[in-house]
Nucleic acid binder design. Structure first.
Length: 442
RNA sequence: CGGGGCGUGGCGCAGCCUGGUAGCGCGCGUGUUUUGGGUACACGAGGCCGCCGGUUCGAGUCCGGCCGCCCCGACCA
């Protein structure tokens, strides 16, 4: 994109409503604008980031054997009456009426809809197991939306649901999703830690939240630094192998990890290499047995011909929240530092002297070769403003084209994450930047 | 929902106590200048002071009501 033709409204000063780093930077970098409390419009740069994250989530879900679908945002109140949650859910649910006075709601989650879909479409245990997910906007009428996109009322979420014949199958589905999640977060440049969470009435150890460390996190978390050493994308674990999944699950549960509610000082004392800090929850998975199957009459013919209620699990990732969470985990005084995999553009091209024949030619050439994956700062502004905006926007690479070097075919390449700069020929710069990974581990 | 605070050009704010021609910085436009980490100067555009009502000769300012937004707490992907 050419910056001169783009809606990337960067701000020098911080809007008063933004208190935490990610919110401030998202506003200042022109990623989003607020339209109402907890509701945001995504501008070009922010939307590109959101799409990249969703795409990585999608790829890992697909790789784990899940199928993507799309369920509507508007749901019928009837389904929620069947599950018994229509009254139970409370004022967080946005309730609507259509012109015929039919009761509708803006979906805060999709267990009811997916269970209904599945009971209409699956008749035999032979169709199990299945795992279905979608990436869709949710609405929860939070009492107090805050932290920008991290606790909005409207938010983009990946929610997935598994259906298995029995508990043993559900455990496999659960572990497979857990692996997919760890791979997803790793590809997003995050060190996410799975922490045992309250699993509700079903009990057992089958509920985990995935937490990343960031100073502005909402809860205190404690974990063994061993987690940070693991590599999930390298091929050590195959989602299709029960043995691999068992080994993976063992790895995930062997080391200490807990949020403040479940923190155990005695166990913590034994951890050799401690990590402690504030945590942001970016995902949550759980197994809930036949709760919805029973409530909503979902059953399939079992091996003996008798009806069996499938065991279900559900798996959530806060896609829009991740934008804020990634920024919380990766920024400095100057702005955002995007991981390569989700940056809105791979590189910024800064033309320090618009109108200079050599500068213009090099920039246009570079811009064409990036095939859309670069933001070309072709504004007539002063260099200082370009540098500041590029740092703020957090492009992994900046290619600085100025009159001093341009005549000799030289440009400066800056790596945002490290601040390293080097003088290179145009060809070398291009080779360096294009060789860098854009999406790791896929 | 309890407690606190704030609504004034795009952004950050002053003005309100003590009513009398709406101001500053940034940004934006034009020109000159400058250009390698937010250049300097000049000129200029841009505001129903959140909304409704009241008091008054006169309301951004005082009074009442409403709406919106932020922060702290309890709750949540």
């Amino acid at each position: 994109m050419r910056l001169s033709r783009s809606l990337v409204p960067t701000l020098k000063e911080t809007p008063a409503e933004a208190q935490i780093a990610s919110h401030r930077l998202m506003l200042r970098a022109g990623l989003v604008r607020q339209t109402a409390a907890g509701i945001y419009a995504w501008l070009p740069a922010g939307w590109r980031v959101l799409r990249s994250i969703a795409q990585i989530v999608r790829e890992e879900q697909d790789a784990a054997g899940a199928q993507e679908i799309l369920m509507p945002t508007i749901q019928s109140a009837d389904l929620w009456r069947q599950s018994g949650r229509y009254d139970a859910y409370g004022p967080e649910m946005l309730r609507l009426k259509d012109r015929h006075e039919r009761e509708l709601l803006y979906g805060p989650t999709n267990e009811e809809v997916i269970t209904d879909l599945f009971r209409q479409s699956a008749q035999s245990y032979r169709q199990l197991p299945q795992n279905l997910y979608h990436i869709q906007w949710k609405f929860r009428d939070e009492v107090r939306p805050r932290f920008g996109v991290m606790r909005g009322r409207e938010f983009l979420m990946k929610d997935g649901y598994s259906f298995d014949l029995d508990y043993a199958g559900a455990v496999l589905s659960y572990r497979r999703m857990m692996l997919a999640y760890m791979r997803t977060f790793q590809r997003l440049g995050l060190k996410a830690i799975p922490m045992a969470a309250d699993s509700g009435p079903i009990g057992g150890d089958l509920s985990h939240e995935f937490v990343i460390l960031a100073p502005t996190g909402e809860s205190q978390v404690f974990y063994d630094a061993a987690f940070e050493e693991n590599d999930y994308t390298g091929g050590d674990f195959s989602p299709g192998s029960e043995a691999d999944l068992a080994r993976f699950f063992e790895l995930m549960t062997a080391s200490y990890a807990a949020t403040d509610e479940k923190h155990d000082e005695a166990l913590w004392a034994k951890v050799a290499s401690k990590r402690e800090g504030r945590g942001i929850e970016v995902g949550h998975i759980f197994y809930f047995g036949t709760k919805y199957s029973d409530a909503m009459g979902l059953s399939v013919a079992g091996p003996e011909g008798k009806p069996v209620a499938p065991h279900m699990g559900s798996y959530g990732i806060g896609v829009s929240r991740l934008v804020g969470a990634i920024i919380e985990a990766s920024h400095d005084e100057a702005g955002i530092i995007w991981p390569d995999s989700v940056a809105p553009w791979r590189a910024a091209i800064l033309n320090l002297k618009l109108g200079d024949a050599a500068c213009d030619a090099i920039c246009e050439d570079l811009y064409a070769k990036f095939a859309g994956d670069a933001l070309y700062d072709d504004r007539g502004d002063r260099p200082g403003a370009k540098f500041a905006d590029a740092d703020l926007l957090g492009h992994p690479w900046q290619i600085v084209v100025g009159p001093r070097g341009a005549a000799a075919g030289m440009v400066e390449v800056k790596r945002r994450a490290t601040g390293e700069r080097q003088e290179l020929s145009v060809e070398a710069a291009l080779a360096l930047v294009l060789a860098a990974p854009r999406s790791c581990g896929s």
